[in-house]
Amino acid sequence: MFKYLPLLWANLGRKRLRTSLTLASIVVAFLLFGLMQTLRVAMTGSPELAGIDRLITMHKTSFVQSLPLAYLNRVKGVDGVVTASSQDWFGGVYQEDRNQIAAFAIDAPTFFEVYNEYKLKPEEKQAFLQDRTAVIVGPMIAERFKWKVGDTIPMRSNIWTRKDDGGNSWPMKIAGIYQASNGDNQSMYFHYDYLNESRAEIRDMIGWVVVKVKDPDRSADIARSIDDLFRNSSTETKTSTEKAFIQGFANQMGNIGKLLTFVAAAVFFTMLLVTANTMGQAIRERINEIGVMKTLGFSGAGVTFLIIAEAILVTGLGGLIGLGLAALASKGIGAAVAQFFPVLGMPPATWGIGVVLIVLLGGLAAAIPCTQASRLKIVDALRKS
């Protein structure tokens, strides 16, 4: 194949303007594809963050409804459960409304047992556990706001108000800056007790329970056992895998995955038409040359191979450039919207999907020209010279 690269390259250079416009359309198509993949992962919470040994227990109706605090200890007693930890969404805002931060009130003593991928220096962990007003933050938001260990920051909530003064600001002291191996380094976590004892509404209620199980293969049975504990109660529960919980959280904004898939399909269909038209014109202009090639001994299959290779070459060039630009753009976008999406970046799997699309779209674009070229008789081709 590689010995024909000079020939393929020369063919692409015959009509440079046409080739450039076709290449540009392919670049734009794959650039949009890469950006949409980035957005899909960000808005669906990135399932890669989910632990295979974790379950989430929430209110049966919706995660925005709370559970009694007493449920936490009852869940811990279920057979197959290693430990469990509660979480509440705080709705954190720092200084200005545009500075929204993913802030959670957690059951601090059990948090690190459930999420062992979150690491702190021993002295910072101890300081966090001993101080109810302490908070730990991710390195990316610490860098963004120039926070350091020991700083006291006023965090506002767009959900909760304080019972003492009716305000919505909680002063918190940064006890440590954690490192999470799963990529979520833009959140902040503080003590549930601090929130519970000072908020004006719904005391002794929690948002959801994160459950760590001994055997992930038994997750379905353990989930049923947990839900059976609270069946027919005033507050029934729904327990699912952490991945399903993350997906459900994202679905509150609509089925983003289907919408982006539809848009990507429309973009690639348009690109396919453009590339197929380009290849069709190129073959019609080279009918005489195809006749000469067959005269020299090229078979119909050989000519077909060269046409497909040419289509894949131009699609590959445009696709790789587009995906490269998307990877660079996603980093810039991630910095701009870090307060809204804890994880934003083009997923590595996009490159693999992109290669498959390059081969598939290149082959489809060359399908009709290949059929025409393979059926072309030498006499007919030379007659059109």
Rank of each mutant, 00 (worst) to 15 (best):
F305K: 02
A311R: 09
E289G: 14
G318K: 14
F269L: 14
F305E: 01
I290L: 03
G345R: 00
L344K: 13
A282R: 13
P348V: 11
V314Y: 06
L328K: 02
G319A: 01
K377T: 01
G318E: 13
A335D: 02
L361Q: 12
G332F: 13
G319E: 00
P348C: 05
G354T: 09
M346A: 03
F340V: 10
V337C: 00
I353V: 03
A276Y: 06
T295N: 03
G322D: 06
V359K: 03
A326I: 13
R286C: 07
I378D: 03
V314R: 05
L360A: 15
L313F: 11
I307S: 03
F341C: 07
F341A: 11
W351G: 15
F341M: 03
L313G: 01
C370G: 03
A309N: 04
E289R: 09
E285L: 02
T350C: 06
I312G: 00
A366L: 08
L320Q: 01
I290Y: 02
S374I: 02
A336Y: 04
G345M: 00
A311I: 08
K377G: 06
A373W: 02
G322S: 10
W351I: 15
Q281N: 14
T304Q: 05
A336Q: 08
I307L: 14
M271N: 15
L296P: 05
G352M: 09
M346G: 07
V379M: 08
A282G: 13
I308Q: 04
L364Q: 11
G334V: 05
A365D: 10
L325T: 06
Q339D: 01
Q339M: 01
S299Y: 04
G363S: 13
I353P: 01
P369Q: 05
R375S: 04
F298G: 05
L344S: 02
A335R: 08
G363D: 09
A329I: 08
P369V: 09
A326H: 07
A373V: 10
K294T: 15
L328F: 06
L357C: 06
T371R: 15
L357Q: 10
V303N: 01
I287M: 13
L272G: 10
I312T: 04
G354D: 06
G319P: 12
C370L: 01
F298V: 02
A366T: 07
T304K: 02
M271E: 14
K294C: 09
A326M: 07
L317M: 12
L317A: 13
M271C: 15
I287E: 12
S299H: 10
A282P: 08
V292P: 00
A276R: 04
L328P: 00
L323H: 09
Q339R: 01
G319Y: 00
G318S: 03
R375H: 07
T278D: 08
L317P: 07
P369D: 11
I353S: 04
I307D: 06
L320S: 01
T275M: 14
P369N: 09
L306D: 09
E289M: 11
T275Y: 04
I321G: 12
I283M: 11
G332A: 04
T295L: 06
I358Y: 12
I307G: 02
V314C: 11
A366W: 00
E289S: 12
G363T: 15
I283L: 14
G280W: 13
A367E: 05
G319H: 01
T270E: 08
L296H: 13
G280M: 15
W351R: 14
Q281F: 15
T295E: 00
N288H: 15
G324W: 15
G334N: 00
G316N: 05
A326Q: 12
